[in-house]
Amino acid sequence: MPPKGRIEVDEKYCKGCELCVDACPQDVLGLAAERINAKGYHPAELIEAGCTGCGICTIVCPEAAITVYREVTKAQGNQ
């Protein structure tokens, strides 16, 4: 089972550059087509399940807008 994770995009910072969309190894990121932020950009968001919490989106994000969480499995939790 691959690890499960999720990301939160701070929409205040996101400029919809799509670098995270291109870099995501699981291809689960996309731009929110129906929503714009204060600057007028479509912010990035998770568009489907499958995020592993690898954090590659945060490495390429120029705005440091992404926070990543990863589920702790029972084995890891007991350590």
Partner: peptide
Amino acid sequence: DLEKLVYERPDTL
């Protein structure tokens, strides 16, 4: 308790 923080925006920004 079941998830850990992998990355967040640094406070220095």
